[in-house]
Nucleic acid binder design. Structure first.
Lengths: 195, 195, 195, 195
DNA sequence: CATGAATGAGCGTTCATTCAT
DNA sequence: TATGAATGAACGCTCATTCAT
């Protein structure tokens, strides 16, 4: 329990520090200080700095994937499923703003250095959207001209950027609910005025 | 003129190197080698490493802004304007894939370190979308319930992620045209099937 | 008795590990693992890493000194004494190849760091040769122009290097007996052909 | 010339530092300080710490090999050749006591870590003795029962240990000439009294 | 202007040693 | 006694930046 505690403490300290300073600018000693352990202790739980990032990424994304799947399983209607996906994503990111940034960093920056895009939690997470769209296309509620593979990227990108902006605290003057509503509206209906 | 030449050479070398290795992993000597100048020469044209990134960002984005504005000015219909915006963005990023990555890096990673988000070319660029939407709402073609400020983020995020993915060469099996079409369709009409 | 047991286990584990990896490259945890005790346990029996090396050295060399003295005491003829010395040294080193290396390390490397060359077992051991030579000079069988003090070094060096080489397994294609014979021959008769 | 100068300065600083503190205890910054350069400068000339040691070893041993070969080439008599070998070895080591120690360290300690005993200057150097002995056996002046391969080790060991002792400054009360004489006497005639 | 050798601050990581259990 | 998790000092190496030429 105690050892587990320390692993968790380091993970959450790292999430915070990576988010605040970015992976490369973050120092191991920053994480250690934040986690209130000695520098060396970190290496009892992780192999190296990058391993910490990866663990943060996989473990935290893992939690979201589980949660998302559970919530979606409770719905029948694809439209509702997508609403749930979008809503919980934005809420999760708002709740753990550090995580949102770590995802950004991992996605854009570090996999440039150490590429090994195995089947990971993250692509699993993004692909949930594609599955929902396919289902919706089968039940007839979604436009069949939409390519689910491309659409999942478009949707994830929209969500991600919206999170980025509020983390950059440039325009945080919108509530999560407002943004959620807007994203859902736009994704579902587009911006054209339908009669 | 010759000096100017060197400035340009360094900028374009840096764009390439940053894109390939990421800002933090790129070394000044990499850029120097790519630009075929001495390491020290770089410091005759830029203050420091970060200044290079910023210059790349501002200058390259600047070009896109100019180009975009010019193209949009030729249109009257907001719907067409947005089509032009989306189309030219994806094409520009495809043409200069290095730049797409540099934007990603700058946006997510480095402004974390050195924050000084003045009014810059980039926010100018993103805001073009908000202006188009406002215009469309005035002319009645766009849904007035859409918040242009949030929508611009959603749209930029969608575009950006789509570019990221093709740069990460995970799923490059779609052509620019296909993707452009999909983005336009989704943004304009959403994914719901309208009767 | 149990404690003593553990002391012995650590000493022999350390001998093995130091020999295999060298003093500086060996880790305390390597020794602990080899001895099947916890890292911390080692510090119940030894003050620090260097103390372990020293103990290995003194205790193991001590055994050899005792043994050598006993064997030599059984001989009357200095020539035979020297034969016994050389023979038992090479055999002891072959039997415990780890020890041979530890002696090498201690002699060349670590006393550079922590110098405290008190009268130790080792100089006692080397000096046995000088005593034998003196005796031989008195009984008239050894050349009196030989300086026993220098000769003991020459002889020990010859023995030591011969052991080093077989440990380095560069040229292990000679048997202990062959080498023993050669060393005795050379030391006794030199390389000149006598009529 | 200047660059070359620096390489040389570092080599000789390293020789001194390695000799004084031993390879593992020596710090890069010690060498840098001794050579009066910045720590980083060292890495412009050498790949890593071990590379410095190796360079010291190979370059310095290289000089000795050249010198030895030249001197030996001037002799016809194998007996004289061996005298020259022994004499110049002891004199070289006395002149550069640091080198003597570096040879010791490299031989016993570090090749344990990074083994790659290619054909190197050192084995070339040691093998000169074997060649001399073979020649002497052919010309009839050396005992043919001596194995040149083993004898070269015995002789090198004797020389090496004699140097070690005077570096350890335990018994430096003998002059180089005295020691040279003793080594030559013992190697040539053995310790037995011949009638 | 241009060069690139030199600098040295800074960080990831290791491992001997300690100490609470 | 025995344990092994935790500590933190210490060091090799990198690389942005400078400056003599």
């Amino acid at each position: 329990m105690k050892a587990d505690n320390k692993h968790t403490k380091i993970i959450s300290a790292a999430t915070k520090v990576f988010a605040k300073k970015g992976f490369f600018t973050a120092r191991i000693s920053d994480i250690a200080k934040e986690a209130k352990v000695a520098d060396g202790t970190i290496y009892l739980y992780f192999n190296n700095k990058y391993d910490i990032l990866l663990s943060v990424f996989e473990e935290e994304v893992g939690k979201i994937v589980e949660n998302t799947k559970k919530l979606i399983a409770q719905e029948d209607d694809p439209v509702e499923m997508l609403n749930v996906y979008i809503t919980q994503h934005l809420q999760a990111m708002k709740k753990n703003r550090y995580l949102a940034e770590v995802i950004q960093i991992e996605l854009r920056q570090t996999n440039k250095v150490i590429k090994f895009y195995r089947d990971n939690k993250f692509s699993e997470y993004v692909s949930i959207v594609a599955e929902i769209i396919q289902k919706g296309q089968q039940t007839g509620c979604y436009n069949t001209e939409i390519n689910p593979d491309i659409a999942k990227r478009i949707i994830f990108g929209a969500l991600d950027e919206v999170c980025r902006v509020w983390n950059a605290s440039l325009e945080s003057h919108y509530t999560v609910d407002e943004i959620t509503e807007q994203v859902i509206a736009l994704i579902h209906n587009g911006i054209l005025k339908h009669q």
